[in-house]
Measured scan of single mutants.
Amino acid sequence: VPQRAWTVEQLRSEQLPKKDIIKFLQEHGSDSFLAEHKLLGNIKNVAKTANKDHLVTAYNHLFETKRFK
């Protein structure tokens, strides 16, 4: 089981690129989880459509539901 890579403050910070969060989610989330949160596909394309709040919610949801690969 992966550990949380970032704190809530870090997740919301401008310093953390959306692409980093997407990469983490794609590496650790199950396909059904990723599909549900519309996070499947090319990281660049996902970054265009997903806002930061959406990614933070998905990140927290992944750990709450433990839907890891």
Rank of each mutant, 00 (worst) to 15 (best):
A5K: 15
D53V: 05
R12V: 13
L16V: 15
T49Q: 07
D20Q: 09
K23E: 13
R4Y: 11
S32L: 09
V1G: 07
K19V: 13
K69L: 05
Q10Y: 07
A58F: 04
A47G: 08
K23R: 10
K18F: 06
E14Q: 11
R12S: 09
H37M: 12
I22T: 02
S13K: 03
N42E: 14
Y59V: 03
L62Q: 00
Q26T: 05
E64R: 06
D53A: 06
A47N: 06
A58Y: 04
S13Q: 04
N45L: 14
K52F: 07
N51I: 08
L11F: 01
W6V: 13
Q15P: 03
F33W: 12
Q10F: 06
Q10A: 04
Q3H: 10
S13R: 02
V56C: 05
V46Y: 05
S30K: 05
Q10T: 03
Q26G: 02
R12D: 07
V56Q: 02
T57Y: 13
L62M: 07
L39V: 04
P17Y: 08
E14I: 07
S13E: 06
Q15K: 14
K52H: 04
L16D: 01
A47Y: 07
L25I: 07
W6F: 05
P2E: 04
T49N: 07
G41S: 04
S13M: 03
L25H: 00
I21F: 02
P2H: 09
V1M: 09
K48E: 15
E27W: 06
F33L: 05
A5S: 13
Y59W: 03
T7C: 13
F24N: 01
K38E: 12
K69W: 06
K69R: 13
A35F: 12
I21M: 03
A5F: 14
A35D: 08
N60Y: 07
A5T: 11
A5G: 12
G29I: 01
N60E: 15
A50M: 10
T7W: 04
K18Q: 09
H37Q: 09
R12K: 13
N42Y: 13
D20P: 05
H28W: 15
D53S: 07
L62S: 00
L16H: 05
E36P: 02
T57D: 14
A35Y: 12
H28Y: 14
D20Y: 04
G29K: 00
E36C: 12
N60L: 15
I43C: 10
E9T: 04
I21V: 08
T49H: 10
T49S: 09
S30D: 10
D20A: 07
F63D: 01
K44Q: 14
K69V: 07
Q15E: 13
L11S: 01
L55R: 00
E64W: 08
I22A: 04
R4P: 15
D20F: 05
L55M: 04
H54T: 11
I21T: 01
G29R: 00
N42T: 10
V8C: 15
E36G: 08
I21N: 00
L55K: 00
F33S: 00
E9A: 04
E36V: 09
H37W: 10
R67A: 11
K44C: 15
L16A: 06
P2L: 04
K19E: 15
K23Q: 12
E36M: 08
Q10C: 08
H54E: 13
L11V: 03
A5E: 15
L16C: 15
V8K: 05
Q26S: 04
K23W: 05
V56W: 02
I21W: 01
K48N: 12
D53G: 07
T65F: 13
E14S: 14
E9M: 02
K69M: 05
K38I: 05
E27C: 10
H54N: 11
T7G: 06
T7F: 05
G41I: 03
N45F: 15
F63G: 01
P2R: 04
V1R: 05
L39S: 00
K19C: 15
I22H: 01
S13G: 04
G41N: 05
W6K: 12
H54R: 13
H28M: 09
T7I: 04
L40M: 11
N42K: 11
R12I: 12
E27T: 09
K19F: 08
E64D: 12
S32D: 11
Q15V: 08
R4S: 08
N45W: 14
N42D: 15
K44I: 14
F63R: 02
D31A: 12
H37G: 02
L55V: 08
A47T: 14
T65P: 03
L16W: 03
E36H: 09
T7L: 05
H28I: 08
K52E: 04
A35K: 11
H61L: 11
Q3G: 06
S30M: 07
G41E: 04
H61R: 10
R4C: 15
N51L: 07
Q26N: 03
L55Q: 00
D31E: 12
V46G: 03
L16Y: 04
L62V: 03
E27P: 00
E27N: 09
